[in-house]
């Protein structure tokens, strides 16, 4: 049956508190989920009290500050710090988002940071995304054609045809959407999740692609596609303002049209 309670070794314990440096006038409190697989201990929630004036504008700046000055064992992914690589996706104050594009001043006085939900945790804020990436790979996210490439040019698209895939192709695979989806929490091993389905949609509607039928065949499944119950968390949390929920609805419509 479904598990509604965390297993005993996943329950979060009280962690350590790192007090603000002496002389701090404005304290910013940040609570961060910590887990070290080598220690054998349960995860814990550490509290970091920082001088608000020393923190940069974004949550990622605060994390880097903590790692540099308070606890160098704090582990998280980050790379581009401008919302294009998708590495620093995490659950900040209950919402999946990118640490680098989330301003601390928009958050409640206290910041709570957890890894993306419902994924195995490698360490601290680093989740295991192997299944997520395999789901992306399973939709064959590349151009498939039978017509040979024209000898004298690329495969052309009209402006309108390009505009159709412009938004769906802007996905950065940060996994905010899939890990915000309750259906994905319960059935991530069989439901492809919004990110992979958005990618599938992007290739189905690509005017140059000639494998739309096979792509739909692969999605026509009670679990792969139809676990989506139009909850809409995916579209709510997308840091790039994309609409995976609509993409999934469009796929369902295409499948229906094929049958009627």
């Amino acid at each position: 049956m479904a598990e509604f309670r965390l297993p005993a070794n996943s329950r979060i314990m009280k962690g350590v508190t790192h007090a603000a440096p002496p002389g701090t006038r404005a304290v910013r409190t940040v609570r961060i989920y910590r887990f070290n697989p080598d220690s054998g201990a349960n995860p814990r929630l550490d509290t970091f009290e920082l001088d608000a004036r020393s923190c940069g504008p974004m949550v990622l700046d605060t994390l880097i500050l903590i790692k540099a000055n308070v606890d160098s064992s704090l582990t998280f992914r980050r790379s581009c710090r401008e919302g294009i690589c998708g590495s620093c996706a995490m659950n900040i104050n209950g919402v999946n988002r990118l640490a680098c594009t989330t301003a601390t001043r928009d958050l409640a006085p206290e910041i709570r940071i957890y890894p993306l939900p419902a994924l195995p945790v490698v360490k601290d804020l680093v989740p295991d995304l192997s299944n997520f990436y395999a789901q992306y790979a399973s939709v064959k996210p590349w151009l498939q054609t039978r017509t040979p490439v024209p000898a004298d040019r690329e495969r052309l698209q009209s402006k309108e045809e390009q505009e159709r895939i412009d938004r769906p192709a802007a996905c950065i695979l940060c996994a905010c959407c899939s890990t915000a989806c309750p259906s994905y929490w319960w059935n991530s091993e069989r439901f492809l999740g919004p990110a992979a389905l958005l990618a599938a949609y992007r290739w189905i509607i690509d005017s140059r692609d000639e494998a739309g039928g096979e792509r739909l065949d692969e999605l026509e499944d009670p679990f792969r596609l139809y676990r989506c119950h139009t909850i809409g968390n995916c579209t709510d949390v997308c840091p790039k303002d994309l609409n995976p929920a609509r993409a999934i609805a469009e796929i369902k419509k295409m499948l229906l049209e094929r049958h009627s």
């Binding site: 399973s138 091993e189 065949d217 026509e220 009670p222 139809y226 094929r258």
Partner: peptide, 21 residues
């Protein structure tokens, strides 16, 4: 088993439209 092998599993059921409709 590889993550992709697990995801591909035994393939698509090729059904679900009827139920949904």
């Amino acid at each position: 088993r590889s993550p992709l092998g697990k995801v591909l599993g035994v393939g698509s059921a090729k059904s679900g439209v009827q139920h949904w409709w």
